Computed example of a mutant assay.
Amino acid sequence: MRYSKFFQYVYLVFGALFLYDAITKYMNNGEIAYPSILLGATAIFMFFFRKNFNKKFENKDK
């Protein structure tokens, strides 16, 4: 169970990195990096989904 709590924060880190990549590409080249934005948004969504899922799983054990 410890690993799943750790990996939910890894999703948040990757989401921030992908969004940073999209912002830097836009600021430097003026291009909109849709894949980076999509991956960043998906990673942030997965963080909240995993957090909610882990909370439900812990409440089920009690």
Results as ranks from 00 to 15, higher is better:
2 R>S: 11
59 N>F: 04
37 I>G: 02
47 F>I: 00
13 V>R: 04
31 E>S: 09
59 N>E: 15
49 F>K: 07
16 A>E: 05
36 S>Q: 13
1 M>R: 13
26 Y>W: 13
42 T>Y: 02
60 K>C: 04
42 T>P: 00
16 A>H: 00
5 K>P: 00
52 N>H: 11
13 V>P: 03
49 F>D: 04
57 F>Y: 14
51 K>F: 10
7 F>N: 09
62 K>Q: 06
4 S>P: 06
27 M>C: 07
7 F>C: 03
51 K>I: 03
29 N>F: 14
28 N>P: 02
7 F>K: 07
43 A>Y: 03
18 F>H: 13
43 A>R: 02
53 F>T: 06
27 M>N: 14
43 A>H: 01
1 M>I: 08
48 F>M: 05
3 Y>G: 08
6 F>I: 13
32 I>E: 03
20 Y>G: 14
46 M>T: 03
61 D>N: 11
34 Y>D: 04
18 F>K: 03
5 K>N: 10
57 F>W: 15
35 P>A: 01
56 K>E: 08
25 K>G: 12
28 N>Y: 13
56 K>M: 08
1 M>V: 07
27 M>R: 14
14 F>M: 09
48 F>Q: 03
45 F>S: 15
12 L>Q: 06
7 F>R: 07
28 N>C: 05
55 K>P: 00
14 F>C: 08
31 E>W: 09
45 F>W: 14
48 F>L: 08
45 F>R: 05
